[in-house]
Write a protein that binds this DNA or RNA. Structure first.
Lengths: 135, 135
DNA sequence: GCGCGAGTACGAAAGACTTCGTAAATAGGA
DNA sequence: TCCTATTTACGAAGTCTTTCGTACTCGCGC
């Protein structure tokens, strides 16, 4: 991973396309990839991913349509945890600093990110306040 | 993918130890790893990492002491960018949501994370104001 | 100076990943 | 029905990773 996850690099490329599209045929995925890869190569990867339980397929006309089974967010979470542990020394703060420098969010996104932090405070407050409410 | 970077999974394990310790001998790194790995295996990885320019070594007594050359933050940044692109659909907000659910920060850390976002607003304000100042 | 033990160098074996060639199957139209 | 184009199935080749065994080296103590 310089596998960020449970997936290998190429598998992650494929999953990325499926997550973005929602689902796709072999040709769809092939088109969605950044870099040119043979048709049967993509098919093979999808078959491997299916063995691993990461995707499933259904017939569509004479072709197969593949759907992701594992959620993007779950995969991302695992990868983030690994990154946090190995490179950011467990510090969410450092990770955030790097995150925003990699992809500077616009004002609206910053506002929503603040909201996420506010929500954290609220949750912390609630659990600390449980005793008071119950009393 | 799990490769999160330029490094393979095992390489990242090794680099993680070096980043944490600052530097270390082969034995130090071996001890620092979660999982048992042969001494020569660790040595070999370090030699490979040195070929790649990720670490350097200096003599210490009869042994070598290895120092990381690449920064943890840089590696983390690359990995974050990949994650952002493939699994979080380019949204720093989604990444943050997952980040805090993976490693819930305490109040002090939340405060510092807010500060990072504040800093972003400040920067955005400054650059928007550049024209006015120049005019 | 010599020997011993700690350490490094080398290379090969095993396994995983990636890629694709070729064969087989299938559906639709002539 | 039969042919063709599209698609899947299989499997093997090439490459990269990971692991470690074995041989060599070097420095320190006697």
């Amino acid at each position: 991973m310089t596998n960020p996850t449970d997936f290998t690099d190429r598998e992650l490329d494929i999953m990325g396309v499926l997550w973005r599209l929602g689902s796709g045929t072999v040709a769809d995925v092939q088109d969605g990839l950044d870099r040119p890869v043979g048709y049967t190569t993509v098919l093979k990867q999808l078959q491997i991913l299916e063995e691993k339980g990461a995707v499933r397929h259904e017939r569509q006309g004479r072709a197969y349509r593949y759907h992701p089974v594992t959620e993007a967010q779950e995969t991302g979470g695992n990868a983030l945890r690994r990154l946090l542990d190995t490179v950011f020394d467990g510090s969410a703060e450092m990770a955030l600093a790097r995150l925003v420098s990699e992809a500077p969010p616009d004002a609206r996104e910053i506002a929503r990110m603040r909201a996420i932090l506010d929500e954290l405070d609220a949750d912390a407050g609630e659990s600390e306040g449980d005793d008071e409410e119950e009393a």
